[in-house]
Design a protein around this nucleic acid. Structure first.
Lengths: 215, 215, 215, 215
DNA sequence: GATGAATGAGCATTCATTCAT
DNA sequence: CATGAATGAATGCTCATTCAT
């Protein structure tokens, strides 16, 4: 990201990043056309190169914005105190659905970052996201344990990682057929497909079983 | 895949698919250059196009081979009877490490298939892999429950999905820094990195805790 | 054409040339695929290169065959004595229609030879065909004049060239929409299309008018 | 032809079309190399593809320009009133020679369009050209007949088609050896070649004889 | 600063021709 | 002699990036 970009109004910055996120999400990094991004953003081809060094620089800015949004629009919901960890996780799953409604492009990009071929772009984002996820989730567990909701034989780390695995794969399933297929394969031998609400319910049930949550 | 390819000797077929898998894994589908694949495979540019309609056709053949290998070299190890489900999962994690040693390119491709931007290529593979994974894992659970190893309050589906989530993320962590970072973030507040063996041990411990496995 | 080709049985030679003529006629020289020709001819790719030096050599052999057929199956009909030059021309037009039924591929190639971009292939054929055409037609005129059918103020050359122009364009119109359009534009202000039989009748009428043929 | 092309200055448009016409005329559609056209036009490879969708689109634009030039630089000369139809035809033949001097590439392309293998490109052009030719020629005949120059036993259509056949083949002979050979074969038994001026003279004589033109 | 036309390196793909079997 | 698999040079086209206006 070049200085010129930071001089733009926040709205304009967002508009450009959102346009880029949209094209990157829909087409994937390589198929995404710079010209299409410019068109969507309502800026000229040359302008974009005043704001970003090259395509990669633009994508990294989108990824940074993605991290920012995940923190402020998704993970931040976890800090709200709830009656039980069950409520917290339920709220977080709902927040994922909401995030997917408002920022599906960013959710897709977040999911793309977890593939080896995107490794070169994920370096920075990776650490920020996972630090965030682990910090929030572990805090959740600690509070929950102090309320006696969770089986004490499960370590905080294991419980946190378990919850994060379920919620991460849930997020993936919202934007990636592969992962929604995976979920359905496990929970229905007969091949039926679950709705998003059903999936949330099933995940909550499973977590309660695994963590022996007493409500 | 065209007829001409099937007429080649199995060795030659494997050599070509492996060369392609290697380039696709290292560069990603779009950055992968046909000429580099041909060079690695020791065949001419023209020959490749006698064997495969186009780049996509070649990639899909690699994906098919990937599914085949996953079934025969990885998931098949799950069918071997073990003393406990703990042994079975441990063996499966080891099998993943072994698979990564022999077929790391295919493991990377398998991981890539789970990203939204690869959706168009994953359709067929997705179902085969997940059906396989769920079938084997659920069978494992059933046997284990009949031996009384697992907390009966956890449904078979939840237990199976839980195990698969841990093992899938473990496989991802072998080929994708993003996921190895994620694991480490959860299990070490101080930011230390775990070795592969440590990760396997931690995963087994966590699963034991979550499933109340009695050994 | 290489020696090996001449050693083949006449039938086999014809089969190969006809297959080539068919593909050349339908696709044009450049789009014509050697492999498609081999397939149609029922010979292997390698065999063709035993018979012909290269694609051009094959095409020239087809052109030679085209000239041979034009002479023996088309122009030869002109030598048959008829009651009047009108009968002769009528028979020749009919012969063209017949030739187009049996050898439409060759008629198309003949028409293609008259375009500048085929000049490099037409050199030999050109002279043979036109010598043939002029010789036969001028002879026709001479006989006709001696019978007093034609206006003596028209030179033999002019009369012959005039007839040949009409018959040549008629042949072109059988295989080339451009020339059938051209004919119709001149003979119908309202844009109607003529059948082949109507065109023949119109041509005969026009020639009679121009040559003042007295029947 | 894309919008971008129409935004260029007329000079630049002509320069590009002329460069393309030159290469298409000299090499034929298929042998013509895009890179050679760009070189001749003094533009980059990429620029060409901003102006035209693909090679075919470029060729069709050249054909359109060809039709435009034929109308404005060649057929338009026919509308000038002359003392006699003989003068008109003479002027038209001279105009053909002149057109060949200034636009020989377009004359070659025009001639190429009349071959079956170019049929797919000729559809539009065909109708425009022939409508033009027939309209102008028939008008010429009508005026001439009203002046009593032409044998009234010859129908307007026949006379027009006859004249057009002679002038069309004359145009072809200017750019295509095949057709100049054909002409010479008919008008010289001894195999001598005629100059362009001689051919024009001969054609005029022949037409006068066939139409009984009284000057 | 902003523009968007122009650049040209780069790649997938084709197909006439060859040659080991 | 016949085969047909293999070759690899050649080319149309794309698109990230630049730069004159």
């Amino acid at each position: 990201m070049l200085q010129a970009f930071e001089k733009l109004s926040p709205d304009r910055q967002q508009a450009i990043l959102n346009a880029a996120a949209n094209v990157f999400a829909e087409e994937g990094y390589h198929f995404a056309r710079i010209s299409k991004i410019c068109e969507k953003a309502g800026i000229s081809n040359g302008a974009l190169y005043k704001y970003f060094k090259d395509k990669e620089d633009l994508f990294l800015a989108v990824v940074d914005n993605c991290v920012y949004l995940l923190e402020n629009e998704l993970f931040s919901t976890m800090t709200v105190s709830r009656k039980s960890i069950f409520d917290s996780i339920g709220s977080f799953l709902t927040a994922n659905v909401q995030f997917n409604k408002e920022y599906c492009d960013y959710l897709r990009i977040y999911c793309d970052l977890g593939s080896p071929s995107m490794g070169r772009f994920a370096a920075n984002a990776s650490k920020k996201i996972e630090t965030m996820a682990s910090r929030y989730t572990i805090k959740l567990i600690e509070e929950s344990k102090s309320r006696g909701e969770i089986n004490k034989n499960i370590s905080n780390e294991a419980a946190a990682y378990l919850i994060d695995s379920f919620t991460t794969f849930f997020a993936y399933s919202l934007v990636c057929e592969y992962h929604s297929n995976r979920f359905d394969s496990f929970y229905s031998a007969s091949g039926r497909r679950f709705s998003v609400d059903e999936r949330m319910q099933i995940i909550l049930d499973s977590l309660r079983q695994a963590l022996n949550i007493i409500i």
